[in-house]
Design a protein around this nucleic acid. Sequence first.
DNA 1: CCAACTACCTGTTAGC
DNA 2: TGCTAACAGGTAGTTG
Length: 290
Amino acid sequence: MPELPEVEVVRRGVAAHAVGRRIENAEIRGTRVARRHLPGPEDLAARLTGRSVVAVARRGKFLWLALDADEALVVHLGMSGQLLVADPERPDPAHLHARFVLDDGQELRFVDQRTFGGLALAGMDADGIPEPVRHIARDPFDPLFAPAEVAARMVRSSSGIKRLLLNQRLVSGIGNIYADEALWRARIHGERPGERLTRPAIVRLLGHARDVMAAALEQGGTSFDALYVNVNGQSGYFDRRLRAYGQEGRPCERCGTLIRREHFMNRSSHFCPRCQPVPRCGLPHSAHQG
DNA sequence: CCAACTACCTGTTAGC
DNA sequence: TGCTAACAGGTAGTTG
């Protein structure tokens, strides 16, 4: 379940090992990992061979290896994807889908149990954003992230605020874990419609999202089931600091009320029923926009 | 255009 | 013991 902090940990690891290196050999196994690379896995492997890694960048949960000639190897980790730097002597792990042999003899491996992740080669625009990432909004770590503008869009929506937080076209990088954590910090229930919040309240909420993700990044990210690891195969420690996500039945750290879990969008929402009261299913809002 | 629903996956765990 | 079902959930495509 890598979200922004976990992807950033991976980005830093890949950058430290791969920038300035040449891809001596590329191996793509199976078709699914390259399903978003329309010309197919053989084309992907052939076009990556011999390329140099110029930089490793990220927006939201997408990361990419910027290559020579303004192209990028776009990587999405999906639910369970891992990028691992390994000595070639180490045996292949289960679910190895791609291997890149670098010119220092080390391998960059893409491993993914649930195969929601994938790889694609794409061109970059003038801002250095690959084509498959163009529709993804800036994330809260982006220097040009504009919370007031995001809030202005959110207060025009009747959707629940958690749904809006998870909408990668509005703000990227936030997944189920950090959405629940940000809402707990802001004392807002995730089903409050955007239009029932004020713009300053949403700006504060986005600030909480940024803060909790920054704190998680300092701990090396959150890991629940050892699926998320950095490029050396190590887990982060932020799961010990979670206050809502995964805390069902435990007392809220602020008020002691037991944290509740409810089904939401085929997943779970965790919240404190006292600090984050369920919105009264009130009347259909008369609009108040300006 | 916007909102909501679903397919895509597999290892682990809970329940019978 | 062995089987089945639930669960984890980000993205893209479809439907309304």
